[in-house]
Design a protein around this nucleic acid. Sequence first.
DNA 1: CTATAAGTGTACAGATCGGTTCTCTTTGTC
DNA 2: GACAAAGAGAACCGATCTGTACACTTATAG
Lengths: 190, 190
Amino acid sequence: MRPTKRDELVAKALQVFYRNGFHATGMDMLVAESGISKTSMYKHFRTKEDLILASLRLRDENFRNWLFRRMEELADTPRGQLAALFVALSEWFREDTYRGCMFIKASAEFQEADHPIHAQAAEHKRLLFSFVRDLAAKAGAKDPTGLAYSLLLLKDGAIVTAHMGYADDPAAAAAHAAEILLEAALGPVN
Amino acid sequence: MRPTKRDELVAKALQVFYRNGFHATGMDMLVAESGISKTSMYKHFRTKEDLILASLRLRDENFRNWLFRRMEELADTPRGQLAALFVALSEWFREDTYRGCMFIKASAEFQEADHPIHAQAAEHKRLLFSFVRDLAAKAGAKDPTGLAYSLLLLKDGAIVTAHMGYADDPAAAAAHAAEILLEAALGPVN
DNA sequence: CTATAAGTGTACAGATCGGTTCTCTTTGTC
DNA sequence: GACAAAGAGAACCGATCTGTACACTTATAG
């Protein structure tokens, strides 16, 4: 089952939007970079906004699959996996295609909270939160919600800091802070 | 010494860029909103990019003045002022004009690290870091740089989380995490 | 073979983009 | 009151924006 033209288009649009931004990317650029005709693009997606939403859906799927899998590979206890979140982040930051968080950037370009693109970006963050909170609960935290929020603040802070490039190693700083928070919430490691 | 036309223009451009985004705001919109003629705008600023840079300079000045002053008002010890950072943030988040961090959004729309706008946004973060690191040193931290980075990760994480609007009270979560980090770095409060 | 669907390529519409040019009016100063 | 500087207002330029129209080519299935 080879990928359909539609899937190829979305995958390529995802790359270009991520690299170049949403407003700054025109449909003509997508035609040039994807090799798919404008006619086909507008047959699959009625508007640019629809294409952006599809790109974000794919990104959400890819990113969560990658992150959750990587956290499970790196550790086999809930607590270890929470710490591994920041190891995975540091790997991501080192990729030369790293350009920050696509959802933060999407919500920055489409600011109104009720805008479909903004809303979908927020949904991605909610899904991450729910995963991390469940892990925190499994790890035995008394306040899994609070611990999850704290860790995700460090994560998003590190993501934007790594993208702005004014700090040496934001992933390491986040990992260090996370270790302290984990110890405060769960006690010292065995 | 009344404000010059130029200052009025920059102040208004700052508002519109902050509310509406950079690419999404056209010069015609600025003409309409500021009541200043296009001729004058282009006499003061050769390009839109120059106007954006001037807006960011003003924002940097306003924001640091406000934040540093507020932290000093809220506490009189270095440690207390570091904690007060998150009280000030929570006040900011509650303003109905709150739209996230203008510098994060600027670096999201102008992604290349060597782009003047991206570079200037990073400079703002560096100035904040330097202030917080000095406070951490005055508070007696063994690793002021590390403590400052950790606190600023929480701060930027809270800022983007508050803007995306998927969490109840990111400022409170950040304040709670910061309290733990401060205790770990500086020992229990007297 | 043929009917149908999917895709290509290109020209185009109407609006808006950043930026320029022009004329006319206001404003402050000696 | 004369004069220069600054600003207003609007037309305009070429480029680009999202989205459409149309004529042509491929691929697939009965």
